[in-house]
Simulated assay, not measured.
Amino acid sequence: MAVAAMAVRTGFGRGGAGLLGAGFAGTPAFAPVTRFDTAGRRTDRAATLPGCPDLAEELTGVVAEVCAGLTAAQRAATPVLLAAHADAANAEVAAAVVAGTGVAGVPRTYTNACVAASTAVADAATVLRTGRAERVVVAAGYLVEPAMFGLFDAGRALARDGRARPFSRGRQGMVLGDGVAAVLLTPDTGSPLATIEGWGRTGDGHHVVKPAPDGSGLARAIGTALERGGVDPAEVGYVNANGTGTEFNDAAEVAALRRVFARAPVPVSSTKSVHGHALEASGLVELVVTVLALGEGRLPVNAGYLGPDPACELDLVLEPRTAAPRYALTLNSAFGGANTALLVGAP
């Protein structure tokens, strides 16, 4: 499956240039939130677009960007799989995207938390492989808002120091971030930006919010993606990790990576360390970053690192690193023990 076009909007603005540059430099977009009152919260930081953007408008914009090269007839035959936070307004958002872009419709909206977008990508691959569509757009969006900010803050999941520090000693939690993205997927194209070679999905069911400490669920998802793509772990040259910067999630993910890559450690970073956690949109934002990095032949930095944690021993990318991996993985995990892995092939 080919990635034919991409569009992204994050706290670094509209487009991938600022996002990728920050990923290589390790410079985060975290700043005080101004679109709602954070008084009384443990932190006031997030990575946000300026002002108070409208989710329907932003999603319409990225879908229009990736469909710019299609004829009206092609757009009218192209479904959109949408990942967004569960909300009564989702039907209105979907209708606005259809009206604003001329696509076939939004047959499904994914709301399964932090694996929503990556699950949609996996389903898009199935749609294409079974010939049910000639092309599929996957779109995802989350804009930082007071309800989820307050919920994660009350649960002490947000970093009090306002920095995401995945796999680092002294990490205090995650930092939320705006993320809106779209990708146009096709069965084949002459010059793709990248390919999706495999995908895996598992549910370990260990705990309502905590991952299985041994990483078994995520390891199975990675193994499934590699098996589906016919790729040996030693062929993978980069992992864009889920890496939220929370104590238990990071340690469990390290356990999963050690299970899969015991014979050949792989370079790892979490780009959430610069663009923040975009919840339902995370999987798509991180897929876009991974594809951009493969195209540049460099690996993004694991920003915010303070020093080693014995529970998180990995080959972390702590400085810009030149590399030309044939394959990369992008990983996501969510509450309830849901895990996804996307195997990305370089163009």
Rank of each mutant, 00 (worst) to 15 (best):
R132G: 14
S168P: 03
E145K: 07
A113H: 14
V127Q: 13
A95I: 09
L143H: 05
G198K: 07
A159C: 04
T189Q: 07
T119V: 10
T109G: 07
A157S: 13
V138P: 00
A139F: 04
R169C: 12
R129P: 10
G105L: 11
D188V: 12
G150Q: 08
A104M: 10
A116V: 02
G190F: 02
P187M: 03
P192F: 01
M174G: 03
C114Y: 07
V98Y: 10
A147G: 11
R129G: 15
T186P: 10
G150Y: 08
A116D: 03
A194E: 03
Y142R: 00
L143K: 02
V93I: 15
A117N: 04
G100K: 11
T101C: 05
T195K: 06
L184Q: 08
A124C: 06
V136Y: 12
F152P: 07
G177H: 01
R165W: 12
D178K: 00
R163Y: 06
F167T: 05
G173P: 02
R129N: 14
V137E: 09
A113I: 11
A116W: 01
V127G: 10
R132V: 05
A147T: 14
R108E: 15
T195E: 10
A116G: 01
D188Y: 08
D178C: 01
N112F: 02
E134C: 08
T101F: 02
T186A: 13
I196R: 06
R165E: 01
A182Q: 09
A181R: 03
D123A: 03
R160V: 13
A133N: 11
R132N: 15
P192T: 04
E92T: 12
G100R: 10
A117S: 11
P107Q: 13
R108T: 13
E145V: 01
V137Q: 07
L151I: 10
A140G: 05
G155T: 05
T189H: 03
A139Y: 00
R129W: 11
M174L: 15
G141P: 06
A154H: 12
T189L: 09
E92M: 10
P107F: 12
E197L: 13
Q172Y: 03
A91R: 10
R156D: 12
A164Q: 09
R135F: 07
A99S: 15
T109K: 04
A113S: 14
G170I: 13
A91Q: 14
A113F: 13
T130W: 08
A194Y: 06
